[in-house]
């Protein structure tokens, strides 16, 4: 079995700065390439770069950033944000990204998943899902970074994404995101048992035991986090040693 993966996520503005970073020991803390290199040295298994730029100009700068990251880092990385059509995927993969993550565009037009898989293989296609557990207990998928509810249920959409050619599901629980009380382990475990592709947990990491629980209880293959790493609250090195001591299979 492959080791459980730890994946820092970097939100990039205009291809130049990472939002919400507060490292005191890193001079260029906001530089996406330098920060990625630091995480790689610390033992990150993969990185995710999300383009949160709205402008066309910013999108071009992001492709340049992808080129720089690919030239510098010797671990895999996924890019996402603003991928609407095959041409976007082509540009980012050609720049050196290993995988692309699609979210709202796939919910709006699910055939995008088939197109990516048939043109580049399922291994490059990560389908990101933002979902909220509503008052009635149902998990509903949201569009546009959690702003617009859809009629889609989490489990139904994840299964469809898999059958269309998703290589991995990146599931963010909107109920848990930013709260730092742990991942949505019950929903994760349900996804893991329903799907044959790997599930990446996202949203809720605040302490090292939350990662352990995402793996041990949520049966996730990978856990993604941003704030706890960017603020230096958890070092990836310490986290992986902790997980190893807790009996989780990780790469040290």
């Amino acid at each position: 079995m492959p080791a459980k993966r730890i994946i820092p996520c970097l939100d990039v503005m205009d291809g130049r700065t990472v939002k919400g970073v507060r490292f005191v020991d890193l001079r260029e803390a906001g530089d996406p390439v330098e920060l990625g290199a630091k995480y790689s040295r610390d033992g990150a298994d993969e990185l995710v770069y999300l383009d949160i730029t709205a402008s066309h100009e910013g999108r071009k700068t992001f492709a340049e950033l992808v080129r720089k990251v690919a030239a510098r880092l010797n671990i895999p990385f996924t890019v996402g944000g603003g991928i609407n059509e095959l041409a976007d995927v082509d540009r980012l993969l050609n720049a050196g990204a290993d995988k692309v993550s699609v979210n709202s565009a796939a919910l709006r037009r699910p055939e995008l998943i088939d197109e990516i898989a048939s043109n580049y293989g399922v291994q490059v296609c990560v389908v990101a899902i933002d979902a909220r557990c509503e008052d009635n207990g149902e998990w509903r998928c949201y569009l546009n970074g959690g702003r617009i509810p859809t009629e889609r249920g989490l489990f139904e959409w994840a299964a469809e994404a898999q059958s269309r050619g998703a290589g991995e599901i990146l599931f963010t629980s909107m109920n848990h995101d930013g709260v730092r009380t742990g991942y949505a382990n019950e929903a994760l475990a349900r996804l893991a048992s329903a799907l044959s592709i790997p599930v990446i947990a996202s949203g809720g990491a605040g302490a090292m035991e939350h990662f352990r629980d995402a793996f041990a209880k949520g049966e996730a293959e990978a856990a993604l986090a941003a704030g706890v790493f960017h603020f230096g609250e958890i070092s990836i090195k310490d986290l992986k040693q902790y997980l190893h001591n807790e009996g989780i299979n990780v790469r040290l």
């Binding site: 298994d45 291994q123 290589g167 799907l195 044959s196 592709i197 790997p198 293959e221």
Partner: peptide
């Protein structure tokens, strides 16, 4: 060919 739900395909990650 997965033998149980814990066997994920593609095989992605560090081994």
């Amino acid at each position: 060919i997965p033998q149980s739900h814990a066997d994920k395909v593609p095989h992605i990650g560090w081994n």
